[in-house]
Simulated assay, not measured.
Amino acid sequence: MSRRYVNQLSHGDSVDEAFLVADKQLRANRQGNLYLQIELRDKTGSVGARLWNATEDLARSFEPGDFLRVRGKTQIFQGSLQVILTHIDVLDAGRVEPEDFLPQSSQNVSKLFARLRELLLAMSNPHLRALVECFLIDDEFVAKFTSAPAGIKNHHAYQGGLLEHVVTLLNVADRILDLYPEIDRDLLLTGIFLHDVGKIDELSYDRAFAYTDEGQLVGHLVMGVELLREKVLRTVELTGESFPPELLLRLKHMIVSHHGAYEYGSPKLPMTLEAVALHYLDNLDAKIHTFGREIRDDPSRDSSWTPFQQSLGRRLFKGTPGQAADGDTSDF
């Protein structure tokens, strides 16, 4: 029998299926009774689940990254689908198909990487092109960069998500840069490539998506600057030419400032044209992806609106159910 994925579940469904544990918390209700709050995941998405009357021994029997066989029933709670569990069993990883559980980019990763190479290796600045080549000839780096997500729960939170995010930004920049001749094209493209490069080691993504110890303690901005410095030294070794100090400084600044505001984790505000452009392009792609996902994945099919999204501070308008937003104005 074929499995049922998260995106096939709806209110009132009985569930008897295997899932990956993305997160687990043992909590107590108002009466002091313990229950388990679990985030279950497969390649199509994740769903929250609760098991009432849990025990500490049961909570210790599995961890994020393990696989569970669960039974229960779905319900809509505060606008979101969740599973009320009646039974769970820990599964041996050898009994499941790993590709069923980690979400992956819907785009062809090989084609995305080919497009990345096409845009970056066409740059005319010899120092930036040599720097990029040092990244692209590093097989270990390429393997990580093409499989890493761009986040754990927010935008592009799936394998290949980082590559997809970066290539989208490169494509947007490639289309609009003729409108902004004052921006250094090669510098912006390189900054786009490098802005989230630290995420390849900030995150773990072989099973459940999580932060590594270094990711928790240091973060991808600092880790990205360290990786850049390492590759610049390698570039100098391979080319025999010094790397321009100001060019390196501008690249470092783009990495550490691309979040755009102190409250969003930027230690510095964008202070160059290329850094400003990177921040707004990055924010645009992240927001469009996040808003689109909330609309697309909303389980309430009969409503014109999503539930209130705490992280976004608003509800989102989906349109009248059954009517496409096709721009038909014939009645006006």
Rank of each mutant, 00 (worst) to 15 (best):
P245H: 05
P245G: 04
L247K: 01
L247H: 00
L247F: 00
L248V: 02
L249M: 10
L249Y: 09
R250K: 15
L251K: 05
L251N: 07
K252G: 10
K252L: 03
H253N: 14
H253V: 04
I255A: 01
I255V: 06
V256C: 12
V256A: 11
V256E: 12
S257D: 02
H258P: 00
H258R: 06
H258A: 01
H258N: 02
H259A: 10
G260W: 05
G260A: 07
A261R: 09
A261M: 04
E263Q: 13
E263H: 10
E263P: 04
Y264P: 10
G265D: 03
G265K: 08
P267V: 10
P267C: 11
P267T: 11
K268L: 13
L269K: 13
L269G: 12
P270H: 01
P270E: 01
M271I: 03
M271P: 02
T272R: 08
T272F: 02
T272M: 08
T272I: 07
L273I: 05
L273M: 13
L273P: 06
E274Q: 06
E274A: 00
A277H: 01
L278P: 02
H279R: 15
Y280G: 09
Y280T: 10
L281D: 04
L281H: 02
L281S: 03
L281T: 03
L281W: 00
L281K: 09
D282C: 11
N283V: 06
D285E: 15
D285C: 15
D285N: 15
K287A: 14
K287L: 14
I288M: 09
I288R: 09
T290V: 09
T290W: 01
G292W: 04
R293V: 07
E294T: 05
I295G: 03
I295R: 08
R296Q: 13
R296F: 08
R296D: 08
D297I: 14
D297G: 12
D298P: 05
D298C: 15
P299G: 07
P299A: 05
P299I: 04
P299W: 03
S300K: 08
S300C: 07
S300R: 14
S300H: 06
R301W: 13
